[in-house]
Design a protein around this nucleic acid. Sequence first.
RNA 1: CGGGGCGUAGCGCAGUCUGGUAGCGCAUCUGGUUUGGGACCAGAGGGUCGCAAGUUCGAAUCUUGCCGCCCCGACCA
Length: 451
Amino acid sequence: MRMSRYFLPILRDDPKEAEIVSHRLMLRAGMIRQSSAGIYSWLPLGLRVLKKIEQIVREEQDRTGAIEVLMPTIQSADLWRESGRYDDYGAEMLRIKDRHERDMLFGPTNEEQITQIFRDSVKTYRDLPRNLYHIQWKFRDEIRPRFGVMRGREFLMKDAYSFDLTPEAARHSYNKMFVAYLRTFARLGLKAIPMKADTGPIGGDLSHEFIILAETGESQVYCHRDLIEMAVPGEETDYDQDLSPIIAQWTSLYAATDEMHDAARFDKEVPEAARMDARGIEVGHIFFFGSKYSKPMKAQVQGPDGQWTLVESGSYGIGVSRLAGAIIEASHDEAGIIWPASVAPFTIGLLNLKAGDAATDAACETLYRGLTAAGIEVLYDDTDERAGGKFKTMDLIGLPWQVVVGPKGLEKGEIELKNRATGERETLKLDTALKTLQKKTSLPPITARKA
RNA sequence: CGGGGCGUAGCGCAGUCUGGUAGCGCAUCUGGUUUGGGACCAGAGGGUCGCAAGUUCGAAUCUUGCCGCCCCGACCA
C-alpha cells in the first residue's frame, strides 16, 4: 500500500479524551475514531489488525473442530423470554422496537439464539458433540464505557457454544476450548494465563478467565510466576485425545483474579520468590453451564437408550475487538505501538527518505514491487514528508520492520533495516535486500511457546 | 447511577472571574529556502464559541434548562 493513496489520519498530539495508552495510540495511529461513548469506527489500519486477530481466533477454533456460523445482531425478545433472561438482564441490554411495536434487542450474547437453532435441528445423540461459534458484533449498554475499545458498548466477540450428551463429554469440549485459547493468545503474541473464575450459581470448576498481564489492567491478579513462561500446546496437539494432562499442567499452579483470590492459599502454595501480583486484562472466558439454557428452552436429544436427554452446554468467549487494545497495552513504548508480527497491519514499512529523487524513488519502487510480489505486506511511505516525520509515523503505527531508503545509503548501494521492537538496525545491500527481507519477515511456524 | 471535570478551527489550548470586532501552537493550502529522527521564512484558508431560552444597546463571557464527552467509584467480555 502506498501511503500517498492510503487513508491514515495520524494525530500528532494526544487527544485529551484518551487516558490509557492503547486508546491514545489507537486514536493517534488512525486506527479508530469514536462515534459515541463506547462505539467506534474502525479505520483502515485498525481494521487490518482486527481482521488478523479475528482470523487467528477462527483458525484455532476450526482446529478444534468447532464450526463457524453467523447469527444476527438483532434478536427477538421472545427468545429471551423463553430462557427467562429478558427480565433478568437489566439495563445493559439494549431493547428496541420494530415498526410493528414488537420487542427486539441488540444481542449482548447468543446462548438463546444458538440453543434455538440447535434444538430445532438436532434430535439425536448421534449428532453430538457439536461446537458452533460465530464472530459477531455485540452490544452491551455498559453503565460506563471506558478505555477505548477495551470496554466499549459495541464490541466484536467470538463466542462458541458446545453441545454434548453428558457432563463428562462436555468437559472434553471444555478442555478443547481451553487448549485452543492457550494457542490463540500465544499466536497473538500474548502471554495469557488461565485463572479460575466464579461459576456463580451453577458451581463446579469449569470456568476460566484468560488474563494477560499489563500495567493498566482492570483487575488485580495473583499467580505463580512460572505460568508466564509455561509451554503452550503445539500445532500437533490432537484434540480428540484426552486433553486433561494439559489442563492439569496449566491449572496446577496458583492463579486467581481478585474476586477469587485466597491469600492464605496463595501464601501456602506459592513460594515467596514465585509469587506475582499484577494487573490483568481479561481477554477470554470459558464456561460450562450444563443445562441452564437447554432446560428452559427444551433442547434435548434422544440417547442410545431412546430416552430424551437435555444437552449439556458451555459457552466460550474471546473479546476480539478488545484484543486490539489489549495487545497494545501489552506491547508499546514511548514512541508508539509495537505490533507482534502475527497481527501487524503491515509487516514492513518502507520509507522513502527523499521522494522525488530519481535514484531513491527507483530503489523504493523496485523493493516495493518485489516485496509485494513476494506476498509481504508493505506500507510504502512515498509521500514527500520530511524524513523525521516519516520515522515518527512509522514508530507510532508500530510495523515490525522498517526499511529505510535514502540517498546517502544508496550511494554505497545500501539500505537500512530497523526492528521496531528491539530498535536494532542493520545495513543491507540493496541488491540482496529482497531476499534478506523475505527471510527476516517470514513468521516462524506457529507452534509451541517453549518454556 | 453517585462524585469530579470538560465542551471555543482537524488536534492541543488561551480568552469566561471583570460582557465590547474570536485568539495562540500544531496540522492544512500557496510560494521560496531546506531535506537521515516531527525544519525555516512569507502569505492564506478554516470557528452558528455544544444546543435552546433568557438578561442586556451588546453574550464565548452572566442566568436557567437541556445535550454530549472524559475521569474516579459501583458494574462488566
